[in-house]
Amino acid sequence: METVTTHRASGPPAAPSDEPILEVQFDDLEQQHEASSVGMWVFLATEVMFFGGLIAAYAVYRAISPSEVALASQHLNVGLGCLNTVILLGSSLSMALAVRAAQLQSRRNLLWFLAITAALGACFLGVKAVEYYQEYREHLIPGWNFQIPAQVAAKSSSLPLDPRRFEMFFVLYFFMTGLHAFHLIVGIALVSVMALLTWRRWFSGSGETQIEVTGLYWHFVDVVWVFLYPLLYLIDVQS
């Protein structure tokens, strides 16, 4: 289907036709879409390695002092973590539906689903803030006024405890969930910008490539949390 593709000469985008503008360096729309999606996937590969450094540090400390890490991870709120996972999976669903709406060029649905995704993301951050506040009240923030919780010190009569590795778990916990939260904030900003641009009809065509690329990023942030939740919260919940 050799459609008439107008090369973007320069200056502001032309009136929104149903066909997206083709950048000058591409030959056809299919190649342009392919390049954007492969570009985002390669960027996600760099993000995997970025989180990978932290996961390597976590794996090392869990390997050399497993009991302290297990003991420390019991102080995380498994319930809130589970709730957060549900919220983030929900936001992934709404993001997938948003991409679908963009593919079918139904602008109203697209706007709704983007709004839901951003809202669920903000909801996740809210729950996370509650968790952080709880940990702050229990003096579990390392480097600040970190104290070994009373009942752990008492209980440790039966369990040996290296206090520095106990604190090390929280260093890694705050760094990993903090970095994830930062990526989520960037994701929410990206989704909001996409919603605004769709609402202002800025995109030439339905902006389907941009929405799909945003979706890829959002699903990646969700996959990171899918791994972080069991690794940090569910190490040893029984005792």
Partner: peptide, 19 residues
């Protein structure tokens, strides 16, 4: 396209090498 498969699997493989 199969290219995106390779990219996603390669990134996990490299994480595996590091670990």
């Amino acid at each position: 396209h199969h290219l995106t498969w390779i990219v996603s699997v390669a990134s996990l493989l490299w994480l595996g090498i590091l670990l």
